[in-house]
Amino acid sequence: MSIYELLTQFGDKYLAALLTTWKLTAISFTLAFVIGIVITIMRISPIKPIRFVGDLYVQIFRNIPGAALLIILVYAFPYLNFVWSYYACVLIATSLLPASFCSEYLMAGMNTIGAGQIEAARSIGMTFFQTIKNVVLPQALRSSVLPMTNLLVATMLTTALASQVPLKPTDLTGIVSYINTRTVGGVTAFMISAFLYCATAVIIGQIGSLIDRKVRILR
């Protein structure tokens, strides 16, 4: 099938798929960011059990394969009377997984600050929260712009998990199997989706490095 035939026949479906992927990515990333911050606060808490739960979260969700997590959410959890829609299951998986990486990046960002600046803040009389507000948080956030950009792209790639459950409208990966089960989409059907993914990734990357250049901290 030529690209022209494909687009006239499935053009609106591709558009819907692109929007689905974007929407899933945006929601997942936002949730992942919020969860990631909460988990990070838990991991730097002085209270050991809270730290432990934060660490455990990260170790579980950075190491479990996405497919395994989605399968457990969709097929295994109903046995425990946790029954969620396909859409909810996908969103839970595509948020919980990147959240662990988000926390790792934030921790790495904070680790670049070093004891000296924190002691300097203390020595001019800043309280714990003033030190966090003035020194730790701004530097951690500014030095994690590039990792967060990569995380946003990674989150988009993770949302391809949505193709593993019946969703309407389907996402950019799902549409390839949709087309191929109806007609012979061939390489072209695949390339259109691939191009849309790549274009999104490149745009995200460009915006990310633009922001990074503005806020990067010289060391």
Partner: peptide, 9 residues
């Protein structure tokens, strides 16, 4: 920029 699943498909 392309998800693994798409390569697999």
């Amino acid at each position: 920029g392309v998800p693994t699943l798409l390569f697999i498909y």
